[in-house]
Amino acid sequence: MSNLLNVSPSPHVHGKESTQKLMLNVVIALIPAFITSVFYFGIGAIIVTATSVASCLIFEYLIQRFVLKKPISITDGSALVTGILLAFNLPSNIPVLIVIIGSFISIAVAKMTFGGLGNNPFNPALVGRVFMLISFPVQMTSWPVPKGLGTGYLDAVTGATPLAIIKEGLKNGEPLSKLMQMIPTPSQMFLGDMGGSMGEVAAVALLIGFIYLLYKKVITWHIPVSIVATMAVFTTILWLVNPEKNADPMFHILAGGVLLGAIFMATDYVTSPMVPRAMLIYGCGIGIITVIIRVYGAYPEGVSFAILIMNAFVPLMNAYIKPKRFGEEVKNG
């Protein structure tokens, strides 16, 4: 024993978890969705994901190195996750330059201006995505039709998403029963054979990721389940009230980015509440806002906006919704 003894306060042992491992587990959980997106959208999916991941990492490095002059922490994996999630929220035929701009907004504006990992109030990937949706509405809503591995990149055949078909059709006064025949069947939607953002289409792949995250204890069930359950209840009510105007709950949950949002975006640690009870309220909020935007709003899809709106309430929920402390109430008289 040549060196001096270390002295530190207890505990003297530490769990095996680390930020890097958690982020890596999220990446692993996203792999099935990536495989299905390549399967449906071909080379475009790979190009967009690679660009997004690379530019997120590079922007984070550059900002830490030259602007903040802080230690470089791109190896923690958070920028990697942001990059993948941003790509998954984009159509696979979007030009590279737009992806780079979106990545810059995600990392530089939504994350680093607030002090980097752990301090951003809004989900970086979603801020980037919404910025792109507003700035490049045409490119962001030209969804390639899934044509398998042979689907081209910029020259892909485009079509509308099921949600957009319903929205447009209802606006033009067409009956829902007719519109429902134009969209893919629930089983096709479950497997992801429809137009949409490259990561959101295959429900089955996302659910595999969800089970993996639960198994690895990366996330708890509260947020995803409360979002989906709230949407199911809300859309069922609307459907029962007027089945000619409102689509069934099955359609609402499988279409669009509900599962991607509920499992991977809303559960982002930094921008979600800390206490289980608050997580349930947060999930309910996202579910309700999503349905309101879809049914009554101007956009066909509202998951991104719903999550960002509820992100804004998270500090408030953290401040006021407290866990029931041990020994808080006298139960035994």
Binding site: N6, H12, S18, S78, Y269, P273, P323, R325
Partner: peptide, 30 residues
């Protein structure tokens, strides 16, 4: 020796694992 040194302190990612680990239901991060 290798088990006796603390890890490098990283920023809090607000994962709430401390909240669920606290047997007294406190909020350690706060």
């Amino acid at each position: 020796a290798e088990e006796s040194v603390r890890r490098v302190i990283e920023p809090c990612i607000r994962c709430a694992k401390c909240v669920s680990a606290c047997p007294l239901n406190l909020e350690p991060y706060l």
